[in-house]
Nucleic acid binder design. Sequence first.
RNA 1: GGUCCCAUCGUCUAGUGGUUAGGACGUGAGCUUUUCAAGCUCAAAACAGGGGUUCGAUUCCCCUUGGGACUGCCA
Length: 464
Amino acid sequence: MDKTKVITRIAPSPTGSLHIGTARTALFNFLFAKHYNGRFLLRIEDTDPVRSKKEYEKDITEGLSWLGLDWDAKTQNEKRKAKNINSKFKTENTNYYHQSERLGVYQKYIKKLLDKDAAYKKDNAIWFKLDSYPDDIIKYHDLIMGDLEFKKDTFNDFVLIKSDGVPLYMFAAVIDDYEMGITHIIRGDDHINSTPQQIMLYKVLGFNLPKFAHIPLILNKDRTKMSKRKNPVSVGKDFRDQGYLPQALVNYMALLGWNPKDEREFFTLKELEKEFDLKNVNKSGAIFDIGKLNYFNNHYLQQLSNDKLLQFIMQNEKRKTKNNNAKLKNKEFILRIISVVKNRMNTLLDFDQLSHYFFKLPNYKSDLLIFKKSNKEKTFRGLHTTYSILHTTNSSRWNKINDLNNILLEVVKNESLSNGDVFWPVRVALSGQEKSPSPPELLWALGKKESLNRINIAIAKSQK
RNA sequence: GGUCCCAUCGUCUAGUGGUUAGGACGUGAGCUUUUCAAGCUCAAAACAGGGGUUCGAUUCCCCUUGGGACUGCCA
């Protein structure tokens, strides 16, 4: 880029949980800043004391961190400047910005506008005077949308400071972006129409214009905007808590509106930092497709080591139940289960469904033991022989899935049965399910004692 | 209504003044197999319409249509 250091920001209002749209905007701001070795800042726009809530602020910061979108901390100098002058707001001294601690700053610029006759007081509020902007046309170059042009007379004077003394977004954002030295304002294209008003403020205040980049919105299935108010899709509740991995969500969100101009589709955050540029962001909105997110999530789940996966499953379980789940105590056992069900998982939450029968054999009908191309006699014979051979099998042979597979094949051969006569009933005996990992995998995961126990139960059932 | 933005398979997208319009998800089929899943192979699936410009437009221009956003003392 050029000599000036890139500084971007994400400026959410804490009036709801971290929304998917905000997260995607944060991602683009983060990536752009990192790509050019710049800074990425977080500013909480909490000037609406009625709707703003601390819990939402917490959700937002936690969500950004979870995604790996760590903001650059305020400098010491910036920290010192922060001062809360309005009793309506309580703010701690965080390493990111709050508008509520900058109320004094806004006053300073309001005075300037008043002095210049660019603002006036009416109904106890401070209004911007459109006439103070000299031109009839406001134009700007958008890094994504191209050259944009607006007629001034389609706007009216607008409120800068409400009658209760609190500044409005339109004004506060301009002052903050200027004071924070924001070089690139990357935000949703729902802000295109309010940009001319902000540009007038920049000009009248004598500020240099930052670069604007309006990114296309994330859309619902019906192509309407996925909005924070109407479609509160939350990063924490709807993705993290539903068993999605941050790397999957990041990868998926990046591809919503941006692409690498070739056929690669898997990117880590680091790779995205390297590849991302506003030039490759397109103009039209993108529908959010949970199916494709699942695909990415499955992909990243497979990349995880079993140990890591165990760790995530425990974390998730903890978040859900608020205490340690007793059934997850036996780590060795869980690790074995993980390795046989892993590739069937789309989200971390799937583990429950895919693994319950390892912990407790479900009740099943004896008919289920009989393979569709088999009969009762063969089923019984298969189970019986399997039991006898496994019974005498040295537990050292139990460590290899392939050995266990060979044992089952031996049974098939010795009894002149078909694969289905043996494998199917063994599967049902071990899992009580018709869909499961392969019988040798089940044997291996369950261990010798439990496996024999379950086969015994099946033999008893098949005799009835 | 006004202002502004957008327009390639169902979805995310690549692409070029001359291409068999490419990839991915999803869908269907096949292979494999003891089931399901996975994996592999194959298939169906798109340039919104009309005018220009041009030897030639999916690509450039205009119009229409369609969709969306904004239109608060919200952000």
